[in-house]
Design a binder for these strands. Structure first.
Lengths: 193, 193, 193, 193
DNA sequence: TATGAATGAGCGTTCATTCAT
DNA sequence: AATGAATGAACGCTCATTCAT
């Protein structure tokens, strides 16, 4: 019984994600989700309190999936530069594996105003991530450029996202722009000097 | 008479921009605009053919304002590095002067699917901009990193936008993170080696 | 429960029919229907996909009611002339019993452009009707005037409709213009010589 | 100056007629007329008091054109049968020459509720027409079937209209269904015995 | 004569949400 | 757990009409 539930629960989130990608956050409606999932509109309210809760759940799910990626343990045992490079590779790999995920995260972040309580929940997730830890450490020991952490995160995330999008859409191929080049660009950007 | 028209016309666009900023592109509705401008909903259709035309007009307006910024003549007479640095400064200045503009541009670009004809119109504007020329030249003579131009533009635009946003919101002050530091970061990011 | 549904469903169609009669097809609006039925406008979309589907449903309902009238079996066992006369009587009776029906059919046919799929559905209904069969047979064995079937159908339908309308509106009484006279007129019109 | 006015005045009516034909009476809007005529929407109110007056004017114009057709003098000097046959030919000719006119008249008659005053104006026009005179005479001397005049007019008008429509739309050709046959059908329909 | 600006009313439609079952 | 029925609110848009110019 629980399995069934979980399946439907996740199907709803999946469809919501698809709608965000093919259209926009505003285009996510219980009507459309219900139609695509094959349940009645009101059934959505069995699984989610309301539309906002649904979107928040989706956001958290993708965020957790993203951060589950970084093998925190490993990173900590490496030299900073190696750790950073490895993280970039992981993120690149993530973008290729779950192309929808990064788009969903970005669009929801920009488009949706979560309330304070939700914001706190998200902050905790981000804070506990290995990347965040890595960036904090890098900032502390001045290995990284002395700018706000948001700037570092943004430059990394948005560049790798755009790169994987470009690859997927055939704007260019991996042969044209090997990831190594992107990696070097990002390292130069974030490293102190 | 004409003045009155232009005023209202621009008021509508201003309010639409505000709605995009405080909420999202999807939240821009003729109803809300009309209410805030203080006119009847149907009056909006006196000024714009439909919602899409309104948003396109807003987008083009902001884009033109942004590119009107770059003093094309000047940039061409300078060494590449100086020209690039100067452009970054201009963009930073723009972000401080018209804080809404960059957000509007970014959100409209990501959120809105303009039709082909509109897309072409926009492409022309972007192409003719001094920055685009500068980046093309830099890519050609290998002064810039050999990656797709979209990656360069993204890294520059999104970083400076986030920086000005952070400053405005008091996340930190200019003293904490002087622009020079951002500038150096971006130069390292885009320059070949 | 089901009864309730069917009742409302048919009430909506009834009111739509009334609007067509007292005004025109163009005057059929979900707003007006809702107001007269005593439900909210959006509730109409619980029962019908959209306005067009509503009108099509109404059209098909009336068409089926009209053709349900002709006792196909009986007509076939009679001589052509008797069959034809009997059909005219049936149609006259129908016009008196359901005075709205013929008007609705006529107005919807002339005013409304159903899409191809709907057109096909309607064609099937018309084709399978006993009248259509009768007319086809009459044309084939030259009992009927050798003109297009549409002309025969028109002359019969529009005359009987107008006659019943006149009677109902008191333009004249059955005593003034007995149906027999109409019947003779129509027989003379359609019969070959 | 007057010529110019008359031109525009009639252009408006022409476009209104076109809209009725290609769509419906309900589709006639000042907006659409203005666009097609190439004038501003408000300019229509220079020529017509309101939408209803415009439609009434159009109706009267077509009705007058239709009745201008029948050469009253000639008909009166002929035997009834010859006169009737000649009138049918005239009407057929009219349908071929002004195919829009009969459709406009029919749609406006069915679709539009003119107020009493307008109704009276129309009645006068119809009454004074040669056909009406002819039919009255035929009814009086029992040459015509003793039914209401509306039935006779309807049978004649709607049949000839449908026939010309069929011809124009290529449902069949004049060779397939010569007018003579239609004429005979109508004569049999209306003549007493 | 002609029109631009303006608007209230209406339209078809979608939506998030509630509630009884 | 699931859903059909229902609805108020909003949306984009068109319309007939008025008015000042």
């Amino acid at each position: 019984m629980k399995k069934k539930d979980d399946q439907k629960y996740n199907r709803i989130l999946d469809v919501a994600g698809d709608l965000i990608i093919t259209d926009s956050v505003g285009a996510v409606s219980t009507t459309k989700i219900a139609k695509q999932v094959g349940i009645s509109q009101s059934s959505i309210y069995v699984y989610f309190k309301n539309r906002e809760a649904l979107l928040l759940t989706l956001y958290v799910r993708e965020l957790k999936r993203l951060y589950a990626q970084d093998s925190g343990e490993d990173l900590r045992s490496l030299s900073f530069e190696t750790a950073m490079k490895q993280y970039l590779e992981q993120l690149f790999h993530y973008g290729l594996t779950y192309p929808k995920s990064m788009t969903i995260i970005q669009k929801l972040k920009e488009d949706y105003a979560f309330d304070e309580q939700a914001g706190e929940q998200i902050n905790v997730i981000v804070h506990q991530s290995a990347v965040q830890q890595l960036l904090f450490k890098g900032l502390a020991d001045k290995t990284l450029r002395q700018v706000d952490i948001s700037l570092l995160r943004n430059i990394i995330f948005s560049t790798i996202k755009l790169h994987t999008d470009n690859l997927r859409q055939g704007v260019y191929t991996e042969a044209d722009v090997p990831f190594e080049r992107i990696q070097r660009m990002l390292m130069k950007a974030v490293q102190n000097n």
